[in-house]
Amino acid sequence: MNRITQLFEQKKNNILNVYFTAGYPELNDTTTVLKALDESGADLVEIGMPYSDPVADGETIQASNQIALDNGMSVKLLFEQLAGIRPSVKVPILLMGYINPVLQFGIENFCQKCQEVGVDGLILPDLPVDVYEEEYKAIFDKYGILNIFLITPQTSESRIRHIDAISAGFIYMVSSASITGAKSGISDVQEEYFARINAMNLTNPRLIGFGISDNETFVKASSHAAGAIIGSAFIKVVSTSKNLQTDIKAFVQAIKGA
């Protein structure tokens, strides 16, 4: 069974998914950050594949992307860094990024490499649902890789139900129409959106992302979904860290209220 599916079967709420950018702050920090998150109690880890034009991301993650690229990070190098990681890292791993670098690598080669190194799923915000279904779903399924779709407050009910029907693992519920890290806190409008989606009784669990930055927002988001995703707030901690292991553990514990 896919590790993501297994996680959501075993744990129904307060699931913490933490995003970080591969090759940041230093080129060889990828596995250090990943292991520290695993050891600190993150439930799911989302590794960003640096891209020159990360349109869904705000200033903090954009800056980390650029620094990682300047450091020499690439998809090929990321797979090399992740090779052999599985005996020491148990947490489910997602790769998050944009479709162009994946297409350049080759979809089948990419999925095969994911399977080899122990990556469980992908988040590709600019991969259209119909293109995935028609051209790539069979390849993802062949290698046991889940494709995680995003929904927003603007996504129609029919589209949400279609995404739910073709999804496995979870649905990434974008809390607002803004970019990542653009705001903090959860508004009444967002809570109405969360309630509307809950009332749809979807098959797949949801994780809420964008604007989650501390224990308060994590707890509030988790009351409307299976858990939440934190990216920009974690990148800020990593960017100023003098000791990644210590600071990452403190961050995860603070978010979880441990």
Rank of each mutant, 00 (worst) to 15 (best):
L7N: 02
L7I: 06
N13S: 15
E26N: 13
L27M: 07
L27V: 04
L27G: 00
N28Y: 04
N28E: 06
T32C: 06
E39P: 14
G41Q: 02
V45T: 02
I47L: 01
Q62S: 14
I67K: 15
V75T: 07
L78F: 02
I85R: 02
V89A: 11
P101T: 07
Q104C: 07
E108N: 05
C111V: 10
K113Q: 15
K113A: 13
V119A: 03
I123H: 03
L124A: 04
V129I: 11
Y132L: 15
Y132D: 13
E133D: 13
Y136Q: 15
I139H: 15
F140Q: 01
N147G: 07
I151M: 06
Q154F: 15
I166C: 03
G169P: 08
Y172E: 00
T180W: 03
K183R: 14
E191H: 08
E191Q: 11
A199E: 11
N201A: 09
I208H: 02
G211W: 03
F218S: 07
V219S: 15
H224W: 13
H224V: 15
A225H: 00
A225V: 01
I229V: 14
S241F: 12
Q245R: 13
D247G: 15
D247Y: 09
K249I: 12
Q253A: 11
I255C: 04
